[in-house]
């Protein structure tokens, strides 16, 4: 088994509806999907966000696209037009989830195309 951050296994996108933050977590194949289904529970996600998320976290599955969804209540400081936070839409929450470290079978970790992939700095120097 390897312990890796979700960043090395998954993609993620987050959005908002009122004070609800809505996260999607994407695995790249069936094996990785089974791993995140077992490891990334609503309880762990709730614990990861701590005081940022005041309400409950409910998890849904979309096996057709190897994805988990997390719907987090009372998560955005009252909702975008009411919130004092700079990230009032919770656009960074998907990335926040990618910090979570999980236990992954070695072969699943090794097969991940996302592992160790980093954005280059040199391409954007002007």
């Amino acid at each position: 088994m390897a312990r890796i951050p979700l960043r090395d296994l998954c993609g993620a996108r987050s959005g908002d509806k009122g004070d609800i933050s809505d996260l999607s977590l994407f695995a790249d194949d069936e094996a990785a999907f089974e791993v995140i289904k077992a490891e990334v529970t609503a309880e762990r996600v709730k614990a990861l966000f701590g005081s940022l998320v005041q309400g409950e976290v409910v998890r849904y599955e979309a096996a057709n696209v190897w994805a988990l969804k997390f719907v987090m209540q009372a998560a955005l400081g009252g909702g975008a037009p009411r919130s004092l936070r700079s990230d009032n839409l919770g656009k960074t929450f998907g990335a926040a989830l990618l910090r979570l470290e999980i236990e992954v079978p070695d072969e699943v970790a090794a097969a991940s195309v996302r592992r160790g992939r980093r954005a280059p700095l040199d391409a954007w120097r002007t």
Binding site: D16, D22, Y60, V65
Partner: peptide
């Protein structure tokens, strides 16, 4: 596939 599924589930809550 990847860009489409990221949008498919965007802000939909229960995907079913």
């Amino acid at each position: 596939f990847d860009t489409v599924r990221e949008q498919l589930l965007y802000e939909v809550h229960d995907p079913a």
